[in-house]
Amino acid sequence: MRSLIAVILLAVIGLGLALCLSDMPFGANHIATAEKAGRHYLEKAPQETGSANVVTAVVVTYRGFDTLGEVTVLFIAAIGLGMVLYRRKKQEGKPPQPASFVLQTGCCFLFPLILILGVYIFLHGHLTPGGGFQGGVIVASGFLLAYIGCADMKIRHRWFEATESLAGSAFVIAGMAGLAAGGSFLMNFMPKGNFNTLFSAGIIPIIYIAIGLKVGAELTGLIANLLERAE
């Protein structure tokens, strides 16, 4: 009976929402006001930021403060998980079976390639699709593969924590440098360089390198924390 009432209530709410939102022009471009910021970014971003990738320009410069917040959210998630797992005892169980020779060789072969791809993605964040977060996730996926393939794999947590900490501080310091040089937090204080080349777009590549390293180290730490507990 209760679930019936719940279903009916949900249906009423859903129907009401659908009716109210049916006249909303999602994705349409016939309302001038509805694309105010978006139009500005598309037209002005290349010259204002020097970045060939407009998405990156929005993420790192126009809304760079949000990105600092998002990096912090990920940092909190990683630290929070570490804190909650801290008091858990390791589960006793059978030691995992070592992977087969083919899998181990494959992992050893792919691991450096995946790292290079990840670094490539975040280095070229201002030129090609992708950026710091995506590159960092790819780096972490390389470590995940190594953890699965090689049974005796153990990362040195201290190094990863140090990377995380340094990269996060570098982001904040880059922002402070903008405040000191240009009077506004996270402002670009470096030359914009030649458009659409690796050394362009001012502080965007620096921030994306910091984000890439931070996200990579954080997610690797998460994976290691979870897998080492499960052993």
Binding site: F75, A162, S165, S169, F171, V172, M176, F185
Partner: peptide, 18 residues
């Protein structure tokens, strides 16, 4: 600058593990 109210604690929090 009021932005320091956010930037300084954030930077400190990132530095703490070091």
């Amino acid at each position: 600058n009021p932005v320091l109210l956010l930037a300084v604690p954030l930077g400190l929090a990132f530095l703490t593990p070091l």
